[in-house]
Computed example of a mutant assay.
Amino acid sequence: MHPQTAKKHIGSVKLYWDFLIARGHVTGANPWAGQTLPDRSRRVERGDERDERAFTEAEIKTLLYSSYPPRMQEKFKQQIHDVMRIAALTGMRVGEIVTLWVEECPIAEDGAGYFDIRQGKTAAAARRVPMHSDLLEIVKRRSKGKRPQDWLFDELANERDPGDVFGKRFRQYRLKLMVDDVQPGKRRSLINFHSFRRWFVTQAERAGVPESTISSVVGHEEGRRSITFGTYSEGPAWQQMRACVDAIKLPTNSFLLPLIEEA
């Protein structure tokens, strides 16, 4: 069992025993109090400590350009493809994307738009992200005929946790296309929806965009924690943030993938 999973089980049993004591079902001290896992550390072999990673170019192509997997509900097809492209070209988190309101995705007459993220997991998460030109069609199509505070992804508006619901749909889609990377001893695949965000950051860095600008676009505090950037700077200019987004290019569909049949 993975150590993190074992710790959760020990914690659950300890809490349950506390409950039994409180209700009078058992007496005495909790035998699980202070229990710890044995030290099973071993020599770290080369390549053992791999962390979750960005998608490779081949994986991005497979996700974006493959035929829609059989036995998946057709009504999810456009939703999955739209969210994937927004994630890859903005670095936004899944919860930020699927809960956008129409008024938070304005497009000016000159065709320039942005995503207005008004809340998030950290103070840095509230930000404006320039809209990549390749996303204009998606936003215009999904905004048509809707009111300002209607959801861009209205099909998820009634879900209790839209980010989690979409995440499960994407995982099913990804696995059906055999885009996975499970390593021995790891509870999760090294790739998931967050790998789009990692891919965006990687591509921006390779395009020569400064870390402080990338941090402002994706809503990270870490890149602006120095006294110089965190205290004295007002942040990068909007033109710099737009240049960061415009530097990202999706790989072209340079190969044709066959329809992947379920085993």
Rank of each mutant, 00 (worst) to 15 (best):
L15W: 07
A237S: 12
V13F: 07
P258E: 09
S226G: 15
S215R: 03
L177P: 02
V201H: 01
I107M: 09
G167M: 03
V209A: 04
E262I: 14
F153N: 06
P251M: 13
V102I: 13
L177D: 03
Q149G: 02
V201M: 08
V129D: 04
P31W: 02
E222Q: 14
V165F: 12
N30R: 08
E59T: 09
G91D: 09
E137L: 10
I21E: 08
E155G: 05
H194S: 09
W151A: 13
G91N: 06
H81K: 05
S195T: 07
Q4S: 15
L177V: 09
Q4M: 11
E234H: 11
T202F: 00
D82T: 02
F200I: 06
P162A: 04
A207P: 02
F200Q: 04
D181Y: 08
G230L: 05
R171V: 04
G230M: 09
V201E: 10
P38I: 05
L259T: 14
S254N: 14
G95P: 07
K249M: 08
V44P: 04
V209C: 03
E222F: 11
H220V: 08
L156G: 01
A108D: 14
L152T: 07
V129Y: 02
P162Y: 07
N30T: 06
C244G: 06
E74N: 12
R206F: 09
T252V: 14
E222G: 09
R85I: 04
S254P: 00
P184N: 06
W238E: 15
E57F: 01
A243E: 12
R42Q: 15
S254C: 10
R142D: 01
T56E: 13
G34K: 12
F255D: 10
N253W: 00
E234T: 04
T99R: 10
V139T: 04
E205H: 12
R142H: 01
H194A: 12
G219Q: 04
M1E: 01
D154L: 10
D48V: 06
S254E: 14
M72K: 09
A124N: 08
P38G: 13
M178W: 07
T228C: 00
L64D: 05
R46P: 01
Y65G: 01
Q35I: 15
V179H: 10
V182N: 08
K146V: 02
F193V: 00
E74F: 07
G163T: 07
